[in-house]
């Protein structure tokens, strides 16, 4: 019997989602929905199927273009509702069209997947620039940010390459998760598992003042264009950008 129109659950990880989707493709099953186990709310008419484990993903992975998996991973990091189903259809079509898949914009799932991927990587790129670290007395760097999509991992890898000899911590305030780097490895934790007590010293405030001075001085008064500034650096970022904090405090945006 061809089993269609079931709801399938997964444990919320990328690995398990891929395991499930590859299994579904192999078994030729079309899911009605794919939902994270924790977020699933039972209904009378719907009998969900528990997470699939120990599915063999190797041979399917070989047939899948690497670029498709990369795009699918970015979609997975997004905050899009129903992203799992988009990933399912995108990967299903990737098997058929292989490397040509990215040109098949007339397919809804491809178009959606590519648009979401672009949104996620744009947000990550913005934060690669906007993230601001504070240094504590014992040379520990600490930064917080708010993002629509789950980009902590992308940022952590970026700063691992850039600041390999520092100790740092980046916290995603929206998801209450964080990443600690100990000059060697990245450790991903939930915020509640860690009490952070950071002391900012006078030297740090001085460096911050120096930066704010530079920020204000470098603008050319005759060219003032706050609208353009805000286009490139929208208000939603301000509360985490050191030099914009004062403007944020004063604005009615809060």
């Amino acid at each position: 019997m061809m089993e269609t129109n079931f709801t399938y659950l997964y444990d919320g990880t990328w690995e398990n989602l891929i395991e499930l989707i590859f299994w579904l493709i192999k078994e030729k099953r079309k899911p009605l929905e794919i939902i994270e186990e924790e977020k699933y709310e039972p209904t009378l008419f719907n009998m969900p199927i528990k997470p699939i484990r120990n599915g063999n993903t190797k041979d399917m992975e070989k047939r899948m273009p690497r670029e498709s998996l990369r795009i699918a991973y970015y979609v997975f990091l997004s905050n899009k509702k129903n992203k799992e189903l988009i990933i399912y259809y995108f990967l299903l079509n990737s098997l058929k069209y292989q490397h040509q898949i990215i040109y098949m914009r007339n397919l809804k799932c491809v178009n959606e997947a590519l648009n979401i991927q672009k949104r996620v990587s744009r947000e990550a790129h913005k934060w690669k620039g906007f993230l601001r670290f504070k240094e504590t007395k014992n040379h520990f760097l600490y930064a917080e940010f708010n993002a629509d999509n789950n980009i902590l991992g992308i940022l952590a890898k970026h700063f691992q390459k850039r600041l390999p000899k520092e100790y740092w911590l980046i916290k995603d305030q929206t998801r209450d998760i964080l990443c600690i780097y100990d000059q060697k490895n990245l450790h991903f934790l939930e915020s509640k598992d860690l009490t952070i007590n950071l002391k900012i010293e006078k030297e740090e405030i001085e460096t911050e003042e120096l930066w704010k001075t530079f920020f204000q001085t470098i603008a050319i008064k005759e060219r003032l264009n706050r609208k353009c500034q805000q286009n490139f650096m929208p208000k939603k970022y301000w509360q985490n950008i050191l030099e914009m904090e004062d403007t944020y405090e004063k604005s009615d945006y809060r």
Binding site: F130, A219, K221, L224, N225, R226, F232
Partner: peptide, 12 residues
């Protein structure tokens, strides 16, 4: 990478 934008809208 642009790290900030000054009040004249130019990238820093």
């Amino acid at each position: 990478i642009c790290h900030s934008f000054s009040s004249d809208g130019r990238c820093i």
